[in-house]
Design a protein around this nucleic acid. Structure first.
Lengths: 121, 121
DNA sequence: CTCATTGGTATGGTTTTTCGTACCAAGTAC
DNA sequence: GTACTTGGTACGAAAAACCATACCAATGAG
């Protein structure tokens, strides 16, 4: 499951139904993991700048609420995409950054941006 | 906004906050357009096999309901990603296929699958 | 005549997401 | 003592997403 695969190979296999017919599709679980209004945007912000403090993220993602940001960050941390570093200062300081696993989503954003530049007016 | 951009260029620009600071980010609107439980999965199924009839799609995406599939397909059609071809037969036959705009999302799925193959056990 | 077929629609209900507001701790500046 | 700071929590309400069920039209097969 860890072999590299060229884009041409992907095209061939994707039209050969090889990827979904067994339970081992490498696409569907990822899509599900990234669902929700904010997760992809948070990761994208952290691609742009990392680490970021809670308050900075909140400002960038305005109008997100505390609750939403907290929940999304918790889930991203649980899934190993985001690292949380807490400094015991007053007032508190917490910095969020991407793990390698999270940073490896950059090609996805690149593909999305290519599409966006072609099709978004 | 239509220039090609290499991956290296993307990496440079994404860390230079060039993409989001003005209102012209090519990533955020795409993310929003593809939100929802089923849209990406529908497009992915149509990447694998196209055209597909309503009933075939429904079987592949089981346990999706009629209502959900209809709604998602309508929105995808409205956004120009999916083409709907209706044949006036009895019983009715309707075929869905990707437009070029929809097919151009294949690199996104490729990037996702690369990530999935690396990180999904 | 009856039943099965396909690609839906309509309706209402349930569940999941998301939001708004208030609140907290523990220091620092005034 | 008072106000301000940050990174949250807790709670309920609102909104959105999602689901189950029933129904339809028009024909063909039996």
């Amino acid at each position: 499951m860890n072999q590299p695969m060229t884009y041409e190979e992907f095209q061939r296999r994707v039209s050969g139904v090889i990827l979904t017919e067994n339970g081992n599709c490498p696409v569907t679980p990822v899509i599900q993991m990234l669902q929700g209004k904010w997760k992809l945007q948070i990761i994208y912000e952290l691609c742009i700048q990392s680490p970021m403090r809670f308050g900075e993220l909140k400002k960038m993602l305005h109008p997100i609420t505390n609750t939403m940001l907290t929940n999304a960050l918790k889930e991203l941390e649980r899934d190993g995409l985001v690292h949380r570093e807490q400094y015991n200062e007053i007032p508190p300081r917490v910095e969020y950054s991407l793990t390698e696993k999270g940073r490896d989503l950059l090609p996805v954003f690149y593909a999305i941006s290519q599409w966006g530049m072609k099709y978004i007016p």
